[in-house]
Design a protein around this nucleic acid. Sequence first.
DNA 1: TTGTATGCGTTATCAT
DNA 2: ATGATAACGCATACAA
Lengths: 365, 365
Amino acid sequence: MKARLSDIAQIAGVSKATASRALANSPLVREETKERILQIAKEYNYQPNALAQAVATKRSGILGFCMHKSGSPYFGHSFFGPMLDGAIEEARRHNYHILVAPADPKNTTFDEHFIQDSIDGVILATFTPVEPINEFRKRRIPLVLVNDAIPSPNNTFIMQDEYGGAMAMMRHLIVERGHRKIAFISGRLSHLSYHLRYLAYLDAHRQYGLQVYNNPDIPMGNLWGDFPRPDAEKLAMLGQRVQEIEGTPILIKGNGAQQARDAVCQMLSTGDLPTAILAATDSVALGAMEAIWEAGMEVPKDIAVAGFDDLPMSATFSPPLTTVHANPFAMGEAAVQELLQLISNPEQESRIRWVDTHIVVRKST
Amino acid sequence: MKARLSDIAQIAGVSKATASRALANSPLVREETKERILQIAKEYNYQPNALAQAVATKRSGILGFCMHKSGSPYFGHSFFGPMLDGAIEEARRHNYHILVAPADPKNTTFDEHFIQDSIDGVILATFTPVEPINEFRKRRIPLVLVNDAIPSPNNTFIMQDEYGGAMAMMRHLIVERGHRKIAFISGRLSHLSYHLRYLAYLDAHRQYGLQVYNNPDIPMGNLWGDFPRPDAEKLAMLGQRVQEIEGTPILIKGNGAQQARDAVCQMLSTGDLPTAILAATDSVALGAMEAIWEAGMEVPKDIAVAGFDDLPMSATFSPPLTTVHANPFAMGEAAVQELLQLISNPEQESRIRWVDTHIVVRKST
DNA sequence: TTGTATGCGTTATCAT
DNA sequence: ATGATAACGCATACAA
């Protein structure tokens, strides 16, 4: 039923070596014999056993897409789903496959059965503890980090331009719309992404001589959460200096719409209102809009709202949300591109690959 | 650096065979030696080469998750993302990994490099041509089809209860809300899922003695699209008889919100209005709601709207959408469960595994 | 241009 | 209880 290489070779009256060469289209084999072998292979519907090929060549053609999260959503997440798609398509173009592997961040020793010696490289898509990273390093498995960067040699980092996107949005709010009193609403800032967005928020104020919105009546949430604050070295790597946190970012637990709604309700009740809100994510923006709407005010007339991410649903809000367009698909593509680079040249030095963001102005600002 | 089995064996002063047995926790090896070997393995951070294991055992521990689509979104899709998550989690519980593999539906011969002999089983998540299916069969690779069913022996099908969900929604509309004039809006009905939803729509009318909404002023789109209409045998398998298509379902190209919006605008302009709309998907429902809103009417006061899928965003519509809750995550789990069954018992007879749906009543009806 | 022999890192069979 | 040795299915260095 299943034809093996030896079968094809025997039928063609050649050795396994020749058959192998013919199938690999090696120039070392005579055209005539090659054609005959290929013909027979086709006839018998021969497909090489990729596993055996992999152990022989020490190259599996599989890339790991690893997420360190304690539970789903993994790819049901609006960012990682499209990112996986980008990775899949780019991998496909180069005849690579992708193996998805969630990993519990609590398991610092990375004991995944399969992934260890069977993978040509790995993409780490979430904030990943250093232990598994070192594990990969020890085993000389090329790796690419997404949306995180760790000061270290010989790594590639894929970074979305969080800072640039947020800065462009602030410019839009301040220059084009004339806002001078802008609130920032976010979950914990220990996630590098949110941190960078907030840094841009701060810098924009400085740049345009504005005062940061400060509302002492709103209790400030847990600024950094369980994770450590991104350190100076990391920020320097990303072209950012460390800033003192000024003002009162409205901090909420998680980045859910519900929590944002509650926080903004509270803000509205204090009477000290900003004219615009920069939300750390579209979900947060949605919650903010709901709160404003419930308070009998209008977006953007009374308070403008801008988001970040550009989820598919954000265009369907009423009014449609002005937001920073992220491109997770491009992130996935970039990750695979860089990983393949790293595979073909393992000694390549550390580098950061930036993926652009841009604002899309709709009706909420 | 990388310790192999032979290294461990040599250091422990035993043969590879014994070492292998010890690591597999075989009872054939003395406790004492076993412990020593395990100790050494740990010390040298030994990890077996899964690839070599796979070729030796003819079992890779990898499940293929295959999507026949001509382009993305693959897992950026709101249904397949969560479904993959379900599959991942269930696979993980049984120490399996998942390899994602898109495949162009135009390539009828399924010539994926890796997937052929390296995979213990495969999940086909989209409407899949029969050729690749037969290819898998020939190679005796267990397979599970999701949301499709092909009359054939020795296959497992995971079906979402489309019919039951739509029927429950119709009951809600008719019995609880008193509607008697209900329009159905959908993309092409050749997709089995939409077909079954429409069948329930039809049956409900019969069951409650209602007349199907018929609006001859709206041009009926392409009823079946490029795909063949689900045949009698398939429908019988799913407990459905073939029905004559009555009435005029509003058919649109694709299931996008934009197209739905246009279609409903047109419907509204005819003056012959239903009191409720059953949309084939939440996106369609969104488009319908926008059209109604634009025409200066209110949901649900003037026209009620019900959807199908329960996307995360549907709860954020204004008003929040009443819809049929689908559970792609559970579909993924079920698919892996059935696939593992099939792997351990390849001769198992064909069967259908139903995954429940239920309606969630919010504010749009 | 082709064949022989060996290696890849395991598991499995058959002795002992 | 342990060891030698043969698979597993392919690639490749070396010979011819």
